[in-house]
Design a protein around this nucleic acid. Structure first.
Length: 798
DNA sequence: AACGGATGTCATTAT
DNA sequence: TTATAATGACATCCG
């Protein structure tokens, strides 16, 4: 056995097989079986009794396993194995050709050189990989040509340099095809003669994406993308550039190239991330390293994507796709198939239109496994710089690892049904994909798993929390994910995630739910729900009312899946949500808007589970409470406004009253003026007749000033009306602001209530009043007015 | 980073 | 007893 013929088996002794532990041997058998499984007929003919011994087990010790595989397969071909029948193989089928294929099957690396390429091609033909040339070498040719044309230009179909660089950047060692310079695999091949080593990968991931790339639209993804770019720029520039330049500039012998490749094989991570090559092995069946024409399922950041055909400068594309392969193998009841593949085959068509080519590149990278292995590691390194977001990255990584295991399961295991939901759900990065994409994805996933995800606690959150965060203010939170913390009795610890998801999920009526037809909730916040509903409606084509498909998330889980990448805040909470779909036979509008009786009748019309009832009542309660809160707030604001208006009115009223009072005082002063005038007239008349005069003096019995002064001093406000001989009437309110000075041309009259005359005086005054007549009436009027004025001032003073 | 407005939700009370 | 409304309190988002 001479893998050493390629110079790659250094340190990989063939004697290792007898010494290899059991798992190595089992893995060997398994690998051989896998390889032969590529051709079902051959499998049946040749290895009908080969048992896959290590399904689902992780294969470690790559080198040893590879060596053991090679040795085992070599022995198998020679019919020297103990339990295997002797195979009559054509002469062209040699172990030299099988070894790279086996290695490819195991490591996703196809090592070709001028020595083995012919054998490899023959073996591939033997195994049924008829399109090896078309898919692999044509691709290589095109890439070489493309590279020759514009090597420095950044093209959307990435140049080989980009490919290589990206390949190395992501630590991918997916499929190494080393065409021999002297022996181009195809006639007329334009492979670069000096290209000894070329990594042909379907990993078209480009770190430097053209601006038209969709990813930058989504901040989260952009963030992750930038992180990857930066990391790639920092960590892998040397390898990427050096590899290419070395390959282009150095004339490396085929053996050296092989050795390099195998060294890469040696450098593979020892821990079971070896599933990748197996995926490629399947791809190999269609188009081998099907960068050119293969369509394959892939995942990126949680989104398992169906790639559009890789956009390459080559016009020729293989119509074969992985799904067809999957279906084919499914029909053939190949045990290598798992439900995962079936899942992907089902889900992929839904998402396929939304996948950007660049997504495909990355996704393919992830699919090939490099992302799952290396990119995740890089991401893990990068997570140190991301405080809260780091969790999301880790989750991504873990998810990628899970998907890696999924991919592994595709080959090695037929178990792992728990992975079913995982690929269909989005990575946190999906939250960045914009509403349309995420919705579509979700819709697709929902459509893909109408039943499996319903009420499935393991289903992950498809509606990223970001959607909630980015929700429009209009708040039509229809999107369905609901926080299951529905029970009031439960702890009301409110996490942002739960709160967000909760609020957004159920509220179908946030903005104007009534305006939305039952299944035409097409407004952006509701689009997810609407699509979900629509899909549900279409898919199930229920006779009755279509079911609302709601996700119900539980905050009890602590695993990874929820939209970790979508929202940083949600990630900071240890409590995470699983989503659970609650199918409701009526719309959210009905739930939230129907009257009580109608609502109860509607509920009674259907047999609903406790979860459904709980969800419905919670939704209705919160919806109503939300509306009530809005009303309450509006009412509160209205009340505040009314109070403010009331205050304003009172202020105006006060000002008005003050103005009126001043006017009244002025009027009173005028009246006093008239009074003083009349009094003076009376005094003059009395001066002419002493008897009258005496009576007037008695009105003011001041012996000191027997002059014609009349003082009426209201006390204590002291409105003094002084009728003086200087023809002025002074009305003073003491400290009060109510003062009026009325000029009296004739006399000085002072009215002072304080100086109210004694009773006898008053009596005499009254007795005199009958005589005085008009003067007495005027005095009374003045007193009345003074009192009135005083009483008006008192409240104000208070 | 702090602050305030807007909003949703929950708990409580009253009807 | 249950549903509902009102409202205070709290959390969160966002500018």
């Amino acid at each position: 056995m001479s893998l050493s013929s390629t110079g790659s088996e250094q340190g990989m002794s063939m004697e290792e097989k007898p010494e290899a532990p059991m798992y190595v041997y089992e893995s060997t058998v398994h690998c051989a079986n896998i390889l032969l499984c590529l051709n079902e007929q051959r499998k049946q003919d040749v290895l009908c009794d080969v048992t896959v011994l290590v399904e689902g087990s992780e294969i470690r010790a790559h080198r040893a396993v590879l060596a053991a595989c090679s040795q085992y397969f070599s022995l198998l071909l020679r019919g020297q194995t103990e339990n295997e029948p002797v195979i009559n193989l054509p002469q062209k089928i040699t172990e030299k050709g099988f070894t790279p294929l086996l290695q490819f099957a195991y490591t996703a690396k196809l090592l070709l050189n001028r020595d083995n390429i012919q054998d490899v091609m023959c073996c591939a033909e033997f195994l049924g990989m008829h399109n090896l040339e078309d898919s692999c070498f044509h691709f290589l040719q095109a890439q070489m040509k493309s590279e020759a044309d514009g090597m420095q230009t950044s093209q959307n179909p990435p140049s080989p340099k980009t490919l290589v660089q990206n390949h190395y950047d992501n630590g991918l060692e997916d499929a190494n095809v080393k065409p021999s310079d002297s022996k181009p695999p195809l006639p007329g091949s334009r492979l670069h003669p000096e290209t000894e080593k070329l990594k042909v990968t379907n990993n078209l991931h480009q770190s430097d994406q053209p601006p038209t790339f969709d990813i930058p639209r989504y901040p989260k993804y952009r963030k992750y993308h930038q992180v990857l770019v930066e990391h790639n720029a920092t960590t892998s520039s040397h390898s990427s550039t050096s590899s290419l330049h070395g390959s282009l500039q150095d004339t490396v012998t085929s053996s050296d190239a092989q050795g390099l490749n195998l060294s890469k094989v040696k450098a593979e991570p020892p821990i079971g991330e070896d599933c990748v090559p197996l995926d490629l092995s399947e791809l190999e069946q269609d188009g081998l390293v099907g960068g050119k024409g293969s369509e394959m399922e892939m995942e990126f950041e949680g989104r398992q994507l169906s790639s559009t055909p890789i956009e390459l400068p080559v016009s020729k594309r293989s119509p074969v796709c992985l799904r067809s392969l999957v279906k084919k193998e499914v029909t053939s009841s190949d045990h290598c198939l798992t439900a995962d593949l079936q899942l992907t085959s089902r889900t992929s068509p839904l998402r396929e239109p939304q996948v950007a080519p660049n997504y495909f590149q990355k996704d393919y990278q992830a699919f090939v496994g490099g992302l799952g292995v290396t990119a995740s590691k890089k991401a893990e390194k990068l997570t140190d710089d991301l405080s809260l977001k780091s969790l999301s990255f880790e989750r991504i990584n873990s998810q990628e690892s899970e998907r890696e295991s999924d991919r592994r399961s595709v080959i090695f295991s037929s178990q792992a049904p728990y992975h079913l939901a995982a690929p269909a759900h989005s990575y946190p990065g999906e939250s960045c994909l914009g509403q349309e994409t995420s919705n579509d994805l979700w819709a697709g996933s929902s459509q893909s798993f109408p039943c499996s995800q319903a009420l499935s606690p393991t289903s992950v959150s498809q509606e990223p929390a970001l959607a909630y965060r980015r929700r429009p203010k209009s708040s039509c939170p229809v999107p369905i994910k609901m926080c299951p913390r529905s029970s009031r009795a439960e702890s009301h610890i409110r996490t942002s995630s739960s709160c967000s998801s909760y609020s957004y999920a159920e509220d179908g009526s946030g903005g104007s739910p009534s305006s939305l037809p039952q299944f035409e909730l097409s407004t952006s916040p509701c689009s997810t729900m609407a699509r979900c509903l629509a899909l549900e409606h279409q898919e199930h084509s229920m006779s009755g009312p279509p079911k609302i498909k709601c996700e119900k998330s539980y905050d009890t889980n602590s695993s990874d899946e929820s939209g970790s990448f979508s929202d940083g805040d949600s990630e900071s909470f240890p409590i995470k949500e699983h989503t659970q779909e609650v199918k409701l036979p009526f719309s959210i509008d009905q739930i939230t808007e129907l009257p009580r009786n109608d609502f109860q009748l509607m509920i009674k019309m259907y047999t609903l589970t406790s979860d459904q009832l709980e969800f419905i009542h919670s939704m209705r309660r919160r919806s109503k409470n939300r509306i009530a809160a809005q009303r309450c707030r509006k009412r509160k604001l209205d009340c505040i406004q009314n109070l403010e208006h009331e205050i304003h009115k009172l202020v105006c009223e006060r000002q008005k009253l003050l103005t009126e009072r001043s006017q009244l005082k002025i009027c009173m002063g005028e009246l006093w003026e008239n009074f003083s005038f009349l009094s003076q007239e009376v005094c003059r008349e009395e001066q002419r007749s002493p008897g009258q005069s005496q009576s007037l003096y008695n009105l003011h019995p001041d012996p000191v000033s027997p002059g014609p002064d009349l003082q009426i001093s209201p006390n204590p406000t002291s409105i003094d009306v002084t009728l003086t001989s200087h023809n002025s009437v002074v009305s003073s309110t003491g400290s009060n602001d109510c003062q009026a000075i009325v000029e009296s041309p004739h006399s000085h009259l002072r009215v002072d209530r304080e100086a109210v005359p004694p009773q006898d005086t008053v009596t005499s005054e009254r007795s005199e009043a009958s005589h005085v007549g008009s003067s007495s009436v005027t005095t009374d009027f003045c007193l009345e007015m003074t009192e009135k004025c005083t009483t008006e001032e008192l409240p104000e003073r208070n």
